[in-house]
Structure formats: structure tokens, C-alpha cells
Simulated scan of single mutants.
Amino acid sequence: MSSSDFPPVRAAGRGPAWYRGDCHVHSVHSDGELTPEALVAGARAVGLDFIATTEHNAAARPGVWGHLAADDFLILLGEEVTTRTGHWLALGIESGEVIDWNHQAGDGRTGACLDRVHRAGGVCVAAHPRAPYPSGDFMFPFPGFDVVEVWNGLWTSDRPWNADNDAALAEWARSLAADIRTGSWRPAMGNSDTHLEGQIGTPHTVVLAEELSTAAVLAGIRAGRSWIAESTDVEGSFTARADDRVAGLGERLATHGGQAEVRAAVRGVPAGTVGFHTDRGEVHQASLPEDGAGTVRWNTTAERSAFVRIEVRHPDGHAAALTNPIILA
């Protein structure tokens, strides 16, 4: 088997940068309607930098994806592990590797499957935890998984948001404060779960990575150095500052007992709202102008806020962007 049968694990990219990617897609090699060629063409057309192959209970086939990678486009290998008590994404697995799906919540076999992904340097994602169909509702406990897919675009109509995503986001948010205190919090991510034409990248995850490589992208996702965008039309910058110290998403800001200014700069959400959320719920909200571009600032302290995360929403309440937290100490 030639090394060109599978995509390379590194692309030239832009060096350290924010990269946009969709880590949950299906082709004709599982239950999708698009060829790998069409998926990659669609991803590149909407401005993505990477995707992950996630066929149901199957490895990426040799010779199918390798020729589609490019210097400016990365293809990660993965699998949607589809069990009777929930689905999860195994991202960054080895070429030809298949993770066993013959396990279910409470049977004691899930841990070995997660360990296998982790030994390969991969990331385990709890997929669409409140999906409205048999086996889609996630019954496994979150401990052991690295990331939660709080935003899944499959079961939506004109915009990639629905009540099931609201429920998944709320569940993740409720656990965040306790998990941050124990140092074991799980970042959020969003993916399209593409099966049909026109779904790719709605939503997707924007990741700060040292380079455009499998290892670097997964490191950014695992650390929560990421946010979720409805589409590539939505742009954002999210930071917190205390004196001359600045922290970004997934990072810890030392405030030394002083004030922290949290800043959200957003484009592409006309007349939207920017909400700041802490361990006390939503604590501040501001409106964006009609052209959708604006910067919102809010001050807090580590005593009042263990972390701050940001939700950007359209006037109808549908999400446009969600961030992972900035942790205050």
C-alpha cells in the first residue's frame, strides 16, 4: 500500500494561524450522497482549511482521499463510531484503522475503545448528544471523551440550529464550571454532519493551530483553542486582558485579583447579539449594528467569574458563533 493512498498528515498551511474545519462528514462510502471529490470541492469552495473523514463504523479507504489533499488543505482520518447508545467521533486515527463499535453504555467496553484512539494521538468527540433519532441520543458519560459536539448541523432547515443543539449546549454549559474547577473540562466543537450537497461547513470549528497538520489541529481542538462558526461569513476575535497579560480561548488568564476586560470583535451577524456567559449564566449582553460588525467589551474579576465564554446569536435567537471559555484565575 502506497503512502499516497492516504492523505498526508501535514499541509503547508499558513504557519501558526486560525484554521477552519469540519470534522464530521459522510461520503458515498457510508450513508452520504456526495463523493469524496465533491465533499472536498465543497469544503474548499466555502473557505475551509481541513475536514475529517468520519464514515460510520468504517475506515477511510485507500486511494479514496489521498489525492484530494493539497498544500493548503488538510484531510484528517477519522470514524463515526456508531453504537446503539450514542455516536462518537474518533479523530486522528491511523490509516486503515477501524475502532470497534460493538459496545454500549454500561457494558465496560467503551474505555478500551477510547484508549485505542488516545494511543494513536487522536481525539474522542461525543457526537450530537441530543440527536432526535434512535441511537443518536448520547447515553455514555462524558468523562473519557475529550470534546463535546454541542452544535450539529444535520437536522436543521434554513439555518444550522435547532432545539436539539440548544439542549446539547445547555448540558455542556451546566457541567463546565465544575469541570473547570477540577481541571478536567471538555471543550465544545461544531460540525455539519454533512450527508447532502450544500451542508458542508455549516457549522464548523475555527481552531488556533501551530501549523496545518493533524497533530496541531487536534492539539488545538483538545485544548479548547477554538470557537464554532455558523459559516465562513462569520468572523470573530475573542480575548481577555488583565494589565499587559492577554489570554485567548482555552487559555488561563492570571488576573492577580484585578479586573479583566473581555473583548469580542465580530463580523457577519447583522443586528445580532453578543452574550457573555460565566459560571453564573449569562451576565452581559450587547447588540451588534445592522451591518453585523462590532466590538463588545465587558469587565469582570476572577472572584466573580471563573471563566467567560461568548455566544453570538441572530435576532431570531439562532446561534451564529459559540466560543470555548477563557479561564480567569
Rank of each mutant, 00 (worst) to 15 (best):
F6S: 00
P7K: 04
P8D: 06
A12I: 06
R14H: 07
G15C: 08
V25W: 12
V25C: 14
H29P: 03
S30F: 11
D31I: 03
D31Q: 08
G32Y: 06
T35Y: 08
T35R: 10
E37M: 01
A38T: 04
L39V: 09
V40E: 02
G42S: 06
G47H: 12
T54F: 02
E55S: 00
G63V: 01
D72E: 07
D72C: 10
T82V: 02
G86Q: 02
W101Y: 15
H103N: 00
H103V: 07
A105V: 01
A112M: 05
C113D: 00
V117H: 01
H118R: 09
G121T: 01
A126R: 03
H128P: 00
Y133N: 10
Y133A: 14
S135M: 05
F138V: 05
F138Y: 15
P141N: 10
G144I: 08
V148D: 13
V150Y: 12
V150Q: 10
S157I: 01
R159H: 15
N162E: 05
A163D: 09
R174M: 12
S175G: 13
A177E: 00
D179N: 12
I180N: 09
T182L: 15
W185T: 02
M189K: 03
Q199N: 02
T202A: 05
T202C: 15
V206C: 15
V206W: 05
L208I: 04
E211N: 06
E211T: 10
L212S: 10
S213V: 02
A216E: 03
V217Y: 09
G220P: 03
G224E: 02
A229Q: 08
E230Y: 04
T232G: 10
D233F: 15
T239H: 14
V246P: 06
V246A: 02
A247D: 08
A247S: 06
L249M: 12
R252A: 05
L253E: 01
T255C: 14
H256N: 12
E261Q: 15
R263M: 06
A264T: 02
V266A: 04
V269D: 03
P270H: 08
P270Q: 04
G272F: 11
T273D: 06
G281T: 00
H284T: 00
H284L: 01
A286L: 11
S287I: 00
S287D: 09
S287H: 14
A293H: 13
T295Y: 14
R297Y: 13
R297T: 14
T300R: 08
A302E: 02
A302P: 12
E303C: 05
R304S: 13
V308C: 01
I310H: 05
V312H: 10
R313H: 07
P315C: 07
D316V: 07
G317S: 07
G317F: 14
G317E: 01
A320P: 05
A321C: 09
L322Y: 15
P325I: 05
L328T: 00
